[in-house]
Amino acid sequence: MVLQVRGIVLPEREERSFWIDGDRLREEPVAHADVVMDGGWLLPGLVDVHTHPGTEEIGTPLDDEVLRKHLIDHRDAGVLLVRTPGSAGRIPKWVDKDPQLPRVRSAGPWLATPGRFFPGHGRDVTEAELVAAAVEEATASSGWCKVIGDWDPNNPPVPLEILTAVVQAVHAVGGKVAVHCQTADGCRNAVTAGADSLEHGMHLDHGLIDRMAAQGTALVPTISVFEAGAQRAQTREPSPRRDWFLSGWRGMSATVRAAHEAGVTVLAGTDSFPCGTVAEEAQWLARYGMSPEAAVGAASWTARSWLGMPGLVDGAPADLVAYDADPTADVSVLAHPKRVILRGEVVV
């Protein structure tokens, strides 16, 4: 059966119709199509670029049943494309073959050098092994690898020369590198090394932002998880680590605003549970200084383009979400899709 949707397409703000034939969008009219959305606002499927489906507890292995549940939670919220920058194991190939699940761009397990992550919760490697491991994970996944660039503020980050070698080697095989950064030195090394994305970016030196924009390093601030962490931290007794965390959290609003204004690609990622809450992350991006349209784009068309996927155009995958109201006028609308269509099938 051919489906038809009609509405105002974002970000172009043009009223258009699409006919869904199989898993593709078509602009050529088809007679007797079943109209499943007539009016409202049409967006490319939402995107969570930093999510870890498949396990909820530190140290537990990737679980197929949990993975499927998490991905369905994403899907039902309109999140039709996810990037998993690190997980407890490699995302199994059956995920890509299941038409009921969102499209996944994975980075394999986290790559952690000694003292820089939860032991055993990812792939533990030595600094000498890091370059080869990064290339292996990038080629075994969807082209991404994830390096834990720093961890404890009292310990040094992955040395710049090693991280630079990682980025160069992964780029040489056509891959991309995401780097976990939460210290000033870790952020500096990741930007200087030419990483493709900074995950978190806490304590980022604003003097590096223009370089990020120029070389195309994206920022994924994962505000939701830090806001929750800050609320917990403020109830604890003062300590150097608590104060370090809270000072980094307090600076993130200015960092997001400055990065966005400088032309850095700022994207929505949750890094938290339950899955399917990227709409909340978009609201935080707007509160932190991004325009409502840019905040919605960070969870939709901007993120899709960054991951190499088209928006709502003829011949594109039929992955879209529809709303009764304009989410760029009120970002909270993003959490309440009227229709969710994945691979040409209405799921909500």
Rank of each mutant, 00 (worst) to 15 (best):
P11K: 11
P114A: 01
D150T: 01
H200Q: 04
A299V: 07
C181K: 04
P337C: 12
P11G: 08
H171C: 04
E227I: 13
P85S: 02
E261A: 15
A228L: 14
D38Q: 12
G115R: 08
D314Q: 11
Q231M: 12
E28C: 01
V220S: 02
V333E: 07
P29S: 01
P61H: 07
I8A: 09
P157Y: 09
D150E: 02
P238E: 06
L111R: 04
D324C: 05
K338L: 09
E227Y: 13
R232H: 13
R343A: 13
A262S: 15
V179L: 07
Y323W: 03
G201F: 10
E237T: 14
L198P: 07
G297A: 02
E281H: 06
W151F: 15
A190C: 08
R75C: 12
G40N: 11
G344N: 02
A228Y: 14
V296F: 03
V179W: 05
G122Q: 08
A107P: 01
G175Y: 02
L160S: 10
M37K: 13
E280V: 14
T84I: 15
V82H: 03
G289C: 08
K146P: 05
A259T: 02
F18C: 08
P44C: 09
E56G: 14
M252C: 03
A190F: 03
G216A: 12
S247A: 15
G86K: 06
R6W: 06
T265H: 10
D38T: 09
A322T: 02
F226G: 01
W19H: 08
G40S: 09
T139P: 00
A254T: 07
Q100L: 11
Q231W: 13
H200R: 11
A190I: 04
V95E: 03
I58T: 14
G143S: 09
W110A: 10
D23T: 12
D152Q: 13
V125C: 07
W144M: 08
V49A: 06
P153G: 04
A325V: 00
G194E: 08
T183P: 04
L208D: 03
T55V: 13
A233R: 12
W284Y: 15
C181N: 13
H203F: 11
E280D: 13
D319R: 01
G7N: 05
A258W: 01
T51L: 06
G45D: 05
D196K: 02
T183L: 00
I58M: 12
V220D: 05
A299K: 03
M309G: 00
E161N: 14
G122K: 09
P238V: 03
T265R: 13
C275M: 12
A112G: 09
H206I: 12
E56I: 09
V321F: 00
T222H: 07
A230D: 13
S291K: 02
M252V: 07
G86N: 06
H171G: 14
Q168E: 15
P92F: 02
A138T: 02
S291Q: 05
A230P: 09
W19S: 07
G40P: 11
G7L: 10
D205Q: 12
E136F: 03
V173W: 08
A318P: 07
R211D: 13
Q234S: 14
D38N: 15
A178T: 10
